[in-house]
Nucleic acid binder design. Structure first.
Length: 584
RNA sequence: GCGCCCAUAGCUCAGCUGGAUAGAGCGUCGGCCUCCGGAGCCGAAGGCCACAGGUUCGAUUCCUGUUGGGCGCACCA
């Protein structure tokens, strides 16, 4: 459809240029898009209204001018001027049929490298439902961009460095239960981390009670800072502990990623950039971008230079230590230099918008020209409030969540299809449960805040992944039966195309547009919407149109139609990381 | 105090770079299994698109303000 629209746009523009010559108003492309309603054709040109004033002619006159050329084009069956100046266009059936038969994604990303930074969990903390959005959105973007021939580097930017490790080392030395650690290491680390947090809070409370004025850091925090300094100085024992924390966490992450069918090309956590931090700060100072302030080193921004006023961005602390701003600058530079990334997507929740504005402004001053995008998403919260790992409140572990998703899917599968074998049922539970979880996150605009409830997150009816998977399974079922009867699919016969079938074919043609929109906007919900519409049209179709019992010519045509729709559905779901099933 | 984000049906959400009569799902009510899978299909009810201005041929969409909510604002990440 994109190619068809481009041709039409050229024809319509030529018609206007024939009348107005190279008028400045005609430099950019004409506004053309999908018809807002089916009775308005396949596509509509809405350029006349905008051009009316600039060209000094009533929009309907301009539309009439375009209509002449457009209607005469070989692709077009019919066209009309409508409303204030729309040109509604219907393509010839054969044009639609041909386009649907040769449908494929365009390799618009060829030769361009995109780095996607996503998931990025903190080491030594278990993955809970709050971590799932970045992981699932990032993975979908990776697949979509790859499908469009972009060279994609999926980078898991682990939180494996920083002050939390000082605290964790203190907690480890004081409270670790070695048996529990041997059995479930990450859970045990969380337990002692929570204990640490409580202890720090308690000591801070005492401090306030004694003397508000000379309040200083609680002793345990001072101890944690000492341990951190030792770790950063390369103290053998603390480094060994730190490595252990990473090791046990990585094993856990690997298991969950396998379960989620998520994979990365590289896992370069914050610690990877450690030995570049000093040089990065030095570079910033050298170029006069960062300056000393109150003992620390920071970047200052102004409206004139950076487009907007921002608070200062700290790249070195007063005690000489570095913070995550520093490693983020180093990461941007590394990605640009090492991979020649032209675009960097960082999938992190909305709370860090200010941080990334500062980071990107700093990178721009360093001469980075790559497109830097903070792909932010709305916070996931519980009805009771925000999820806080530190206090261990309201934590729902990802494993438990996925288990429950599978349990519910299995229950439904058993009710609806008792004929499934044990292994099939388990596979159905896995694919449907995981699909429901993914689709629930991806189908909303990523910027929408999600308040987690089990029933909403794991719904299996209506606009959900199981609905799409079900439509697919139904189509496969028909195709299997056809094959068993030796009914071969044939060319789509435009002579016998019903309006519903033509509509279905036309919807098929918008698939590449939906995928490219996701790539442009980093908003996967656009693809979800598209696929739901497609499946919905398909469901309507097979409820009303017999396939196997139709006349042979119609039957073979419909078999091909079903096959094409099933293919797009399965491909599209695959881009979202959602699987399909032959039976469910 | 400053800044970012959000406000659309009872609930959860779409609404494509401004376009014609604002759409889905859930829930509610009513139909559809002698017919390819009822996780489905068809239909009904349900809206001052938070409020007030502005921009223009046209605003749910863009701008300003107000109200209500979420979040952030140098030595945590």
């Amino acid at each position: 459809m994109l190619e068809l629209m481009a041709k039409l746009s050229t024809v319509a523009k030529a018609a206007l240029q024939g009348e107005f010559g190279d008028h400045p108003a005609l430099v950019s492309d004409l506004s053309i898009g999908r018809a807002t309603k089916r009775e308005f054709g396949d596509v509509q040109i809405s350029a006349a209204m905008a051009l009316g004033k600039k060209l000094g002619r009533p929009p309907r006159d301009l539309a009439a001018l375009m209509l002449k050329s457009v209607a005469a084009d070989e692709l077009v069956a019919r066209a009309e001027v409508a409303g204030p100046g729309f040109v509604n266009v219907w393509f010839k059936d054969q044009v639609i049929v041909d386009a649907a038969t040769s449908l494929e994604l365009r390799p618009i990303g060829r030769g361009q490298t995109v780095v996607i930074d996503y998931s990025s969990p903190n080491v030594a903390k278990p993955m809970h439902i709050g971590h799932i959005r970045s992981t699932i959105i990032g993975e979908a973007l990776k697949r979509v961009l790859r499908a469009l021939s972009y060279q994609v580097i999926a980078d898991n930017h682990l939180g494996d460095w920083g002050t939390q490790f000082g605290k964790l080392i203190v907690a480890y030395k004081r409270w670790l239960d070695t048996d529990a650690f041997a059995k479930a290491p990450v859970e045990e680390l969380l337990r002692i981390y929570i204990k640490y947090t409580q202890e720090e809070k308690r000591e801070a409370g005492e401090e306030i009670a004694e003397d508000e004025a000379t309040k200083s850091a609680p002793p345990i925090l001072q101890e944690a800072r000492r341990e951190l300094v030792k770790l950063q100085a390369g103290d053998a024992k603390n480094v060994a502990l730190w490595k252990t924390f990473i090791e046990v966490s990585m094993a856990e992450f690997a298991r969950i990623y396998a379960r989620l069918d998520v994979s990365f090309d590289v896992t370069l956590g914050e610690s990877f950039y450690n030995d570049r931090l000093a040089a990065t700060v030095a570079l910033l100072q050298e170029k006069g971008i960062a300056v000393e302030s109150e003992g620390a080193i920071a970047v200052f921004f102004s409206k004139e230079r950076d487009g907007e006023e921002l608070p200062p961005f700290l790249v070195r602390k007063g005690d000489g230590g570095f913070n995550y701003g520093t490693s983020d600058v180093a990461a941007v530079l590394y990605r640009v230099e090492h991979w020649s990334a032209g675009r960097i997507l960082i999938v992190v929740d909305e709370r860090q918008q200010l941080h990334f504005k500062q980071l990107f402004a700093t990178a721009r001053r360093l001469g980075v020209t790559a497109s830097l995008e903070h792909v932010w998403f709305g916070l996931m919260r519980l009805p009771e409030g925000v999820i806080r790992t530190r206090d261990g409140e309201g934590l729902i572990y990802l494993d438990d969540f996925l288990d429950e998703a599978e349990r519910r899917a299995e229950k439904v599968a058993t009710e609806h299809n008792p004929a499934l074998s044990e292994t099939e049922r388990r596979e159905v539970a896995r694919v449907v449960g995981l699909g429901a979880v993914r689709y629930n996150d991806l189908s909303k605009d990523r910027r929408t805040m999600i308040t987690f409830t089990w029933d909403k997150a794991l719904s299996l009816t209506g606009n959900t992944a199981p609905y799409l998977q079900y439509a697919y399974a139904r189509m496969r079922s028909i195709l299997r039966k056809a094959s068993a009867e030796d009914y071969a699919p044939g060319p789509i016969a435009r002579e016998v195309l019903s309006p519903v079938e033509r509509d279905l074919l036309t919807r098929l043609l918008w698939y590449p547009d939906a995928v490219e929109q996701v790539a442009r906007t980093a908003c996967p919900h656009i693809l979800c919407d598209y696929l739901f519409d497609l499946a919905s049209a398909m469901s309507t179709f097979y409820a009303e149109h017999p396939v196997l019992k139709a006349e042979p010519e119609i039957r073979s045509s419909r078999l091909t139609l079903i096959d094409r729709v099933a293919q797009v559905l399965s491909d599209g779901l695959g881009l979202l990381g959602i699987g399909v099933l032959e039976r469910m």
